[in-house]
Nucleic acid binder design. Structure first.
Length: 766
DNA sequence: GGTTAGGATTAG
């Protein structure tokens, strides 16, 4: 078969070609070379009609674009097909198809100048021993499949649309807003399509009937629109519903290679399934009364409250358990009729979503038990009244920007089927008679859901941490590592059984990279004391108003009559904007220094001596920038007088980088680090590994966490994910880590230590 | 038959 048509096989991204064929690049083509065993692969951009040459042979010209090169100026080439292959080929190819031509001849293209394509064209014929392989682009498989039966529609490529026409078209969904209630009389859905012509079309679709709008569930779905009107709007073509508009949607999922990701917990990515249906399935097998089992969302007080506030809430479950405490709409237990204990238990698995404004109407119309996909949910971390426990809230805000809205998935949707399968597997884990069970035993059942989930995650080899390098290394068991000599490096897969310190703020230390010492971060009381001591020395007026700083002096109005001097560093004889200004302060309290550091770029606490300003004792920060206090190492620093700072001030654009400031002041800066001890286990053994991290592991700068409640909560949540409190070992998530072993000799004592490196918390955990 | 919205955040 000279022309071979290859259907897309799920999971296969490469065309299976004979092994003797070698790929040829466009830019390497030359005349006079034997291309019998070479092939070129491209995407069909254009395909002309078959014509007959003078000698009666069929002829077809096809334009291919290099599949791997969309950037070069010349990335397309003419393919000239002679003989029977021309007809065969014309029958099957459409723009967008992947086209492989093997065993071709190369010749100069006489039209290169006019068409701007490659200087050579490829000549193909059966007689020359050529072969052509075509893989239909998904879209066109569908279009051809329907047309091969009744080819009565013509589909216009998106780059050929004209104002004022009504056309039929195919496209791949690039963006969509699920149908929402418009301010007029209809539902509205906005859909942006692309096709192999690389053109884009945004369509605004209206219909009073929800069913006649396209049922798009995912970006990448393929749609067919019949009788859509094309108009020009703001200089671009726009599609709009017209009389007789009809649409068809296909699942665009091709067996694409799986994107390597650490984890795929769906609730975080905004995919949430309304689960009562799934629940009722589960429900059936545990011999509860089936049917309308899920009525949390319709609890009377909830609806009443929501009506009053113009709000509405949905309770959903995607089969997983949110690793963080989530906000719950208060529902009084007397309104939970029937399986009260069960509904109560279920509340640990469901998530409440507050629905606002225009989404309320649609939310109210949802049937209990439908599977939903809710787009662009806002998750918000908030503290409850007692402050020490934070929770996550889910809001579906008003408006439809970025496709915010609710979509209903049909039962036969592949994702829904997958979810159902998942829940059926859960059944196997706990098919017991619930009627006779106590609530303690019910807890057991839900543990099994979590068990199953964690088992599933293990099977999928998900990890809550990812490696930032050396992915090619194989895992080593902890036992093997413990039995090996140091120093070495390993890749491991283990669980975090426990960690120290449990009070996370205690993990922050100051590290000197010069002498490798670690120090505690001074607390506010320490600092106040040092500042107070330094305030005992009155500012020396002789040091005020120099060539490179202006000074201001005042006395506090309180009884202490403190003298405070502030020296503003000038630049080009001028004072800069506060946000670019460095200042030095004498006699300020911690609060005053802190306030100034919020307004000004840099604040340096100083004291007067006879002949120059000097830094305070290095127990105090030598610099404050924003909320960060920079400290210097007492052992390694040899502080100079403040005068040395004038060289930096004289620079054209002083950046006031802490490292530069430290350097000119003779200070060896200390760096903030997280120091933690992780006890890791993997079934073969347990070892303690130290985490020494400036920022990389938690993706939180150690320097900023002490002054940020938000970052502290973020770190707490991360640790809750890595090592969820109260879980059994089996339920803990896996961590992929690199560790290195090293020797430490202290006198006669010799020990091997382990440190985590080149590892970071997975994207969806932080 | 007209309108709606016309992708391009909410901030409750």
């Amino acid at each position: 078969m000279p022309v071979q048509l290859l259907k897309i096989i799920k999971g296969e991204s490469e065309i299976p070609l004979p092994s003797h064929l070698q790929k040829e690049e466009l830019k390497c083509l030359q005349e006079g070379i034997d291309y019998t065993n070479k092939y070129f692969q491209g995407t069909v951009v254009l395909s002309y009609a078959v014509t007959k040459l003078r000698d009666g042979t069929d002829f077809l010209k096809v334009v291919l674009q290099d599949s791997n090169d969309f950037c070069s100026r010349i990335n397309s080439i003419n393919i000239l097909i002679h003989g029977k292959m021309a007809e065969d080929c014309a029958k099957v190819i459409r723009p967008g198809d992947t086209f492989v031509v093997a065993g071709f001849k190369v010749a100069k293209s006489p039209t290169a100048k006019e068409d701007g394509r490659h200087a050579y064209h490829l000549k193909v014929s059966e007689e020359a021993g050529s072969a052509i392989y075509v893989r239909w682009y998904q879209t066109w498989i569908i279009s051809l499949a329907s047309q091969s039966v009744a080819p009565k529609y013509v589909y216009t490529p998106l780059n050929h649309l004209k104002d004022g026409t009504v056309v039929n078209l195919y496209g791949i969904v690039k963006f969509f807003k699920p149908p929402y209630v418009s301010k007029g009389t209809d539902y509205c859905s906005v859909v942006t399509l692309v096709d192999p012509s690389n053109a884009k079309l945004t369509c605004t679709l209206f219909s009073g009937n929800l069913d006649s709008l396209p049922k798009i569930y995912k970006i990448g779905d393929i749609v067919r629109f019949h009788r859509i009107k094309i108009r020009e709007y703001n200089g671009q073509m726009q599609g709009i519903t017209s009389g007789g508009f009809a649409s068809l949607t296909f699942d665009g999922t091709v067996g694409a290679p799986v994107v390597p990701r650490a984890s795929s917990r769906e609730s975080k990515s905004g995919w949430i399934f309304f689960s009562s249906k799934a629940y009722s399935q589960w429900n059936k097998s545990v011999s509860l009364s089936s049917g309308k089992a899920w009525n949390l969302g319709n609890g009377q007080p909830l609806i009443q409250r929501c009506f009053l506030n113009g709000l509405f809430s949905l309770q959903v479950w995607d089969g997983t358990k949110c690793p963080y405490p989530t906000w719950k709409v208060p529902v009084e237990s007397r309104d939970l009729e029937g399986e009260r204990g069960l509904l109560h238990q279920l509340r640990n698995l469901t998530v409440d979503i507050l629905v606002y404004d225009n989404h309320v109407q649609l939310a109210k119309s949802l049937k209990i038990g439908s599977f939903l996909r809710i787009y662009s949910i806002h998750t918000k971390q908030a503290s409850s009244d007692n402050h020490d426990v934070s929770h996550v809230e889910f809001h579906l805000h008003g408006g439809t920007c970025y496709g915010r809205g609710i979509g209903v998935l049909p039962e036969n949707n592949s994702d829904v089927r997958e979810l159902k399968e998942f829940l059926e597997s859960v059944d196997l884990a706990g098919s017991q008679n619930l009627d006779s069970m106590s609530s303690v035993e019910l807890d057991g059942i839900f543990c099994n859901v979590a068990d199953f989930q964690s088992h599933l995650q293990r099977c999928q080899q998900l990890s809550v941490t990812v490696l930032t390098d050396h992915q090619d290394l194989n895992n080593t068991g902890l036992r093997t590592i413990l039995n090996s000599t140091a120093p070495q490096q390993y890749r491991i897969r283990a669980k975090l059984r426990t960690f120290k310190p449990q009070k996370l703020h205690q993990s922050i230390k100051l590290h000197c990279s010069k002498c490798n010492s670690l120090k505690e971060v001074p607390n506010g009381d320490d600092l106040n004391l040092i500042l107070q001591e330094s305030a005992a020395t009155a500012p020396n007026p002789e040091l005020h108003n120099t060539s490179w700083y202006d000074s201001v002096l005042w006395t506090t109005q309180d009884q202490k009559q403190r003298k405070i001097a502030i020296h503003f560093v000038k630049h080009d004889e001028m004072l800069q904007e506060p946000e670019n200004t460095l200042l030095m302060i004498e006699g300020g309290t911690l609060k005053e220094v802190w306030k100034l550091s919020r307004k000004f770029k840099c604040v340096i606490p100083v004291r007067s001596t006879e002949d120059d300003l000097k830094l305070l004792d290095l127990s105090a920060p030598f610099l404050l920038q924003g909320s960060v206090k920079y400290y210097g190492c007492k052992q390694c620093s040899t502080p100079k007088t403040i005068k040395s700072l004038s060289t930096l001030a004289a620079e054209q654009r002083p950046s006031w980088e802490p490292t530069e400031i430290a350097q000119v002041l003779g200070v060896v800066p200390l760096q903030y680090v997280f120091i933690m001890k992780f006890t890791l286990v993997d079934g073969t053994g347990a070892l303690n590994a130290y985490l020494f991290d400036y920022e990389k592991f938690f993706q939180i700068p150690a320097s900023e966490i002490l002054t940020s409640d938000f970052l502290q909560q973020k770190m707490q949540m991360t640790m809750n994910t890595l090592c969820p409190p109260g879980r059994k070992l089996d339920d803990l998530p896996w961590l992929e880590c690199f560790i290195k072993s090293y020797n430490v000799t202290d006198g006669m004592k010799h020990q091997v230590y382990y440190q985590i490196f080149d590892t970071t918390v997975a994207e969806d955990v932080v």
